[in-house]
Amino acid sequence: MAALTLRIDGQAVAVPAGSSLLAATRLAGLALPVLCHLDGLTPVGACRLCLVAIEGQSKLQPACTSEALEGQVVATNTAELRELRRMAVELFFAEGNHVCAYCVASGACELQAMAVTLGMDHSRFPYQYPLRDVDASHPLFSLDANRCILCSRCVRVCAELEGAHVWDIAGRGRHCRLVAGLDQPWGEVDACTSCGQCVEACPTGALFHKDDSTAEKHPHPIRALQLRRVHDLPPRPDP
């Protein structure tokens, strides 16, 4: 396989051609925060946490959807990027209703962990307190739209791995929301195979097993290992 070389945060990296900048960064042993990315699914660049600065380009680019190119010089950990990432997480908290206190995913939530990792201690943006519902019509699982960050991991895992395509994102802008089937109650969607992969893929407590209560959602052991590998990368010193 053809290889190409580039510099990430001053470090020379050789990666297979066709790799994403996210993959290249990880190959270099550097951590890059993500929420919408899940290995094995098509990247969509939705969460904007993996934004990087590429020399010669005026706009920041999401590393997950950007292809690594020969000779690129990439910065992933500048003060501006860190500030933008924290701002993105603050916006997630401000636009939904994220109450860790009684959330089923507390302690195992990627959004919660990201807020801690990025040093978010409050949101500079006013909370929107949107009126959102809980869909508990499925016999095994529930969707609490208050906790959905529209990462679309459930959409992709259902469409790409299970082949059922139960989930999709409807609406525009702040009216975007996750819908099941043809915007039906989840329990009425015949296409759902009740495989539970969407629940496993969900980074927050939006999708959960019905009989789990506060702080009882835990990732599947294999997924937990994946997460640990990503989160266990060495801490990044300030440049």
Binding site: A101, Y102, V104, D211, S213, T214, A215
Partner: peptide, 14 residues
């Protein structure tokens, strides 16, 4: 209102 009853222990404890 609107929350699953399984969350009530977590909510009302607060």
């Amino acid at each position: 209102e609107g929350h699953p009853f399984t969350e009530m222990a977590g909510i009302t404890a607060r």
